[in-house]
Design a protein around this nucleic acid. Structure first.
Length: 278
DNA sequence: ACGCCCGCCTGTAAGC
DNA sequence: TGCTTACAGGCGGGCG
């Protein structure tokens, strides 16, 4: 499922493949994908003729900067893919947006479960972050806040750690998979209240967050059994091979051999080592 | 302020 | 074998 490392991998792929290209055609057809646009007919004219200037990311959102000053914002949701394919190639099912580029290729948004979205907006600060993303918390890799600042943010929060890590208004980009991996790396239980951590524990959480996310980006993200996550080239990620708790219920902990457990946390599966994480 | 549930979706896999 | 059910989960909204 696309979380920060997967979205960052897509961002880097777009930077290599589509920055500098002009959009010659636009087919924004997906009704649910374009749900922020009550009138979808306004979308294509804002895209056609513009050049892609750059690609930014905050948390799980991508912001594709256009020469017009608009930004094309993309969220992959659960099953969204941004694929760069030759325009002549057959389109897969659930293709909701197609941008025809000036090099004979398409940038395609494909999303079977339609939890993802695409919209065009004009940042009030030219070249800045789209205003719609302003409610997001800090981005662990873009902002690189230090341990001291992280500890100050934790201090005000009574929330349990897993919920807090997945709260996009607190820290942007972490979802179910990486919250479990980060908590394992920090040797902290998912239900610990954030403001109850000792300073060493808070520093462990900070260090684990950066270490897990950096390693996952280096391995181009996680693709699970459903193979829904693909980069812009259609390639799978490799970080799932490094998962130490996620999806490993009943398998021995890599640190202590105790069987990994699964718990329902807020309607979702959370995985942890009952011995290492306290 | 926080926890928890629901609804939105489709594809896959487990269960009967 | 074939149908039904459960599950995967990001996110916004609602409710207690």
């Amino acid at each position: 499922m696309p979380e920060l490392p997967e979205v960052e991998t897509v961002r880097r792929g777009l930077r290599s493949e589509v920055v500098g290209r002009r959009i010659d055609r636009a087919e924004p057809t997906g009704v649910r994908t374009l749900r922020r646009h009550p009138d979808r007919s306004v979308v294509a004219p804002r895209l056609v003729g513009t050049t892609i200037d750059g690609v930014g990311r905050r948390g799980k959102f991508l912001a594709i900067g256009l020469s017009s000053g608009d930004a094309l914002v993309v969220h992959l949701g659960m099953s969204g893919q941004l694929l760069v394919r030759p325009s002549a190639e057959e389109r897969p099912r659930h293709t909701h947006v197609v941008l025809g580029l000036d090099d004979g290729r398409d940038l395609r948004f494909v999303d079977p479960r339609t939890f993802g979205e695409v919209f065009v907006t004009r940042p009030s600060v030219p070249g800045g972050l789209p205003d719609e993303l302003g409610r997001l918390g800090f981005d662990p890799l873009e902002d690189r806040i230090g341990a001291a600042a992280f500890l100050r943010l934790l201090a005000g929060r009574r929330t349990r750690l897993k919920s807090l890590l997945m709260d996009q208004g607190f820290v942007a980009g972490i979802g179910n998979i990486y919250s479990d991996e980060i908590l394992f790396g920090a040797r902290l239980a998912h239900d610990r209240p954030a403001n109850g951590l000792s300073p060493p524990e808070g520093r462990r959480l900070h260090r684990s967050m950066l270490a897990v996310l950096d390693d996952a980006v280096a391995r181009r993200g996680s693709s699970l059994a459903d193979a829904q996550y693909r980069d812009v080239y259609g390639q799978l990620g490799q970080y799932q091979l490094r998962h130490r708790v996620y999806g490993r219920e009943g398998q021995p902990c890599t640190r202590c051999r105790t069987p990994i457990r699964r718990a329902r946390v807020g309607g979702r599966s959370g995985y942890y080592c009952p011995r290492c994480q306290t």
